[in-house]
């Protein structure tokens, strides 16, 4: 066991040094095949319907990954900041409903953030914090667009200039999410 553990550790140290080196800008092309994550969808176990519907709406146009915030309840005390730095590797992070705000409270991300169907403001982005909510939820403020048919969201520039979209009428909120993601990416 001792010899085996030594080998594992030597391999691990070599790998760490190698990964750090390869992550330098001059070697970035080596990671091209890995492909960056476009969207991280952050949800709790209770929000599986929203998670699935968002995944379906975003379709094959984007590389989407999921993160279940319930994992944080069983992680060690560094779990929160590790979750944030993991999510920041995506170009957009979508937080579904209230649970992420409670478990990642006070975090500010260095990537674009979409708050989906929550009016809470415990999560923010240094780049762009965007609210996408249905008519029962009031976003915290800013430039709000009310969308009822989708025509309001057909111009990417209009979305990028907004801080929130409140979906009303016949427009499907998941279809609106796809339009917002496409505009913000």
């Amino acid at each position: 066991m001792k010899t085996f553990l030594n080998k594992v550790l030597v391999a691990y140290f070599a790998m760490t040094a190698g990964l750090i080196l390869l992550n330098e800008p001059g070697y970035a092309y080596l990671w091209a095949g890995q492909g960056g994550t476009d969207v991280y969808i952050v949800h709790s176990g209770k929000d599986k319907e929203e998670k699935s519907a968002l995944k379906k709406a975003l379709g094959g146009d984007f590389k989407v990954k999921f993160y279940n915030v319930d994992l944080l309840a069983l992680a060690d005390y560094s779990g929160k900041q590790k979750a944030i730095i993991k999510l920041e590797k995506a170009r957009i992070v979508i937080f579904i409903k209230d649970a992420p705000h409670e478990l990642l409270e006070g975090s500010t991300l260095n990537t674009k953030v979409i708050i989906f169907n929550s009016g809470k403001d415990a999560l923010k982005s240094k780049v762009k914090t965007f609210y996408l909510v249905d008519k029962t939820i009031a976003p915290p403020g800013g430039n709000t667009v009310r969308a009822s048919s989708g025509s309001e969201l057909n111009k990417a520039e209009a979305i990028r200039n907004a801080d929130a979209v409140v979906v009303d009428g016949a427009l499907d909120i998941y279809k609106a999410a796809a339009l917002v993601v496409a505009a913000l990416l």
Partner: peptide, 13 residues
């Protein structure tokens, strides 16, 4: 606490 994301799947802390 220092956390460094090498990728979103490899994090050194």
């Amino acid at each position: 606490f220092f956390d460094m994301a090498i990728t979103d799947a490899i994090i050194a802390s």
